[in-house]
Design a protein around this nucleic acid. Structure first.
Lengths: 117, 117, 117, 117
DNA sequence: GTGGTCTAGACCACG
DNA sequence: GTGGTCTAGACCACG
């Protein structure tokens, strides 16, 4: 698992981990049933505290993206399709919002299309 | 000045104020030379701490969007065009990033266009 | 807020806090908008670590029962009715399960009714 | 012996085994004198560690529900009646507690009866 | 070795 | 003073 942490960013470390693993799953780099690194392993690899990884895993579990099995390890859950759809929907929604904003600035759909192509 | 503060948001209150005033200016709801409310007034209207408004005004002045004239009050500056261009550029850049992401999820340009139209 | 922690119980401390506050809300001892003790205050009162209280508050927020407003404090949310309905539904479901079990042991509905009256 | 292990549950695996075998006995699916699977066999069948099954059998023996005869194997004990009574009493007690809770929420005995019938 | 809980305490931004 | 993040590290049950 190749995760780069940006320690300057306003985004908390635990949240950067959540985003990364989420994208591994939605991009199908990791698939349902796959085991992910143990809390200790990932903490050691990233040079951070196990509690921080735990917090990330907790949030991912709450989102239904991973499942923790005590003493067994942590695994990718089956909700991948839902997670993927959610992610795409959010990206599309963001784009729409931005386009709406641009229109408020007087840009036409044609001009916007020109810019983003 | 109609500003809604979201106290749950991760975005600091002072920054929400900056964003709002910035958009008033870029959308030309407010124009160069217009006077904006005093720190005390706005703080009272929004029911928040004057220090918070002060912090927002400081940042806006530093960005060159407003100018405070000691005993006279605070006014919209002339850099509007630059501010506007910056805002538009950011919106376009965001859209491009999201489109790139969507392509990573296997969507074609045609499909993306279909979604956002 | 009168919360008794049972340190011997298998139920984690943070979860006992969740249950207690949840019941305060569902029993309308606390109402939407009410401020609850700050993390530090409650931790001090209960003689436990602030992180443990934080964990409880996080879970309660995730459940939609409380809302944390940074620098303002923590407040009861508006979902009380839903929370209450959920709690009642769970209690009723538990009872039904137990009755079903008792029938497996050969008890009739009459006998069960006799026992629980 | 049909036992389903829930690896997500907070209830330890060994305890899930205890509960299941206990219910086999109290529901008289298994009767005094019946032989139960060897530790190795059950561990293999469930795909779990023999130590876990051992722990479950130890607890069951301590409770007087099974008896292991060194070279002969493990058998259901005669205390079935006591075990059964205990189980029923617990179920009834749970129901009573839940009913008490429901009354705290303002439901009358009539309403509760309506719900659980 | 694995995840789960908890303590003790630091530091931060915000207001 | 408030909540949010993070470290360091201990201890636990389970397997």
């Amino acid at each position: 698992m190749n995760i780069n942490i940006d320690y300057q960013a306003r985004i908390p470390i635990y949240y950067q981990i959540v985003n990364k693993i989420e994208s591994f799953v939605t991009k199908e780099i990791m698939k349902p049933g796959d085991q992910i690194p143990s809390i200790r392993d990932l903490a050691y690899t990233l040079g951070i505290n196990p509690n921080t990884v735990k917090k990330a895993y907790d949030l991912l579990e709450q989102k239904g993206i991973i499942i923790s099995k005590s003493t067994k390890g942590t695994f990718i859950a089956n909700n991948v399709e839902r997670a993927k759809k959610e992610k795409i929907d959010n990206l599309v929604k963001d784009i729409k919002n931005n386009i709406e904003e641009l229109k408020n600035y007087g840009l036409t759909w044609k001009e916007i299309l020109e810019e983003i192509k």
